[in-house]
Design a protein around this nucleic acid. Sequence first.
DNA 1: AGACAATTATTGTCCGACAACCGGAGTGTG
DNA 2: CACACTCCGGTTGTCGGACAATAATTGTCT
Lengths: 217, 217
Amino acid sequence: MVDLRAIDRSSTTDRVAGALREMLFAGDLSPGEPLREVSLAEGFGVARSTVREALQVLSGEGLVTRYPNRGVVVTELSEHDIGEIFEARLVLESAGVRAGATGADLTPVAAALATYAEAAQADDQVVATHAHLEFHTSLVALLGNARLVAGADVLTADLRLALASVERARRNARSQVADHRRLLTLMRSGDPDSALAELERHLRAAAVSVTERVVGA
Amino acid sequence: MVDLRAIDRSSTTDRVAGALREMLFAGDLSPGEPLREVSLAEGFGVARSTVREALQVLSGEGLVTRYPNRGVVVTELSEHDIGEIFEARLVLESAGVRAGATGADLTPVAAALATYAEAAQADDQVVATHAHLEFHTSLVALLGNARLVAGADVLTADLRLALASVERARRNARSQVADHRRLLTLMRSGDPDSALAELERHLRAAAVSVTERVVGA
DNA sequence: AGACAATTATTGTCCGACAACCGGAGTGTG
DNA sequence: CACACTCCGGTTGTCGGACAATAATTGTCT
């Protein structure tokens, strides 16, 4: 018996948006690069209107920016933007950590960390990056609020966009994992203030690290 | 000299989306009501593709929900959704209040409150509601983070949607204003914990009030 | 009544068209 | 040479129409 849910029920627009999203995350398209409707339509073999709809959803996600009458370009993030993203993440994740340090079930966080550690050990960059982001998202998820998680996902996506344009390898994956493990331990020990301080320290360090790499690119 | 920025540079799509948004906030369209592309196109005198684009932006804002192959309906908020919205606002506004109680410039907050009080005194519901929402947004704005403000705006819009379907009049506008004034005073006094407690109390009360009215509608 | 077929309404996607608009290349003028 | 103006090609914004795919509804048969 075939799993009927497995058949592709997505719309063409969704698939085009998905393909573009992958290209953006993979760094195939550099920030500032214009996305021409006709060439994309020809490239994907779809109608221009379909491409327009796909671009609209991506612009809703902030991955591309629409300039009226001039088209759509891959969103360029300034140093200021990156600072904002990390500050916003700090707000959301702090709330999550507070929940985590005061009773919420930490299983998903631990699971993400385990995957992260494993991938870092095996030097699998793709999986490691994914698990790393998943770890942070799972912090927000501790609040059990789908809207906040959605907001965090948008921030994460924007960040991935910035990272895609620079070198991806993290030299210090080990120490990174240790950082996250420390945070989880503090949450488990039920010490909110220490856990929050650790989160803030970690995010600030990450912010400067990302900023350096972006401006240096 | 004419203000050149005053000339209308908006696209047809923007205007259609704006018109629909107004209708949604005004309660002209009830939650669950389907929005047919052809009738809207005829009604506005625009092409169907233009209506589709407008609906896409609204669905990005969460005001309408798209069901594949079945169209778009005005988003219906469950009791659970309303709880989530208020919880999410609590997270964002708490961060703002914390900033406000520790140094940020409270002028915009005070300005919104003044407008609110004035409108409540004059029994101007429309202005009062707007100023009230502005007050809460200005709390988030204390963080100086455009992304968080944008997130708060989306939450506010969703809430307006829920409120549009029920009676809008607030019988106790005076005590509402007093509530907000108290919060501002606490922030000014530089007492974060008390201010945060007051915010939480206020939002929780508002949540049950809104929930009651929505489920009772 | 319930399973099944036929009908209809609506969306999803495509195509082609054209005006409006933008940026740049060329042109003229002081 | 600097500046303003005009023209032009490429692109977007919007339109109208078309048709297949899908879902909802109605009608039919057992």
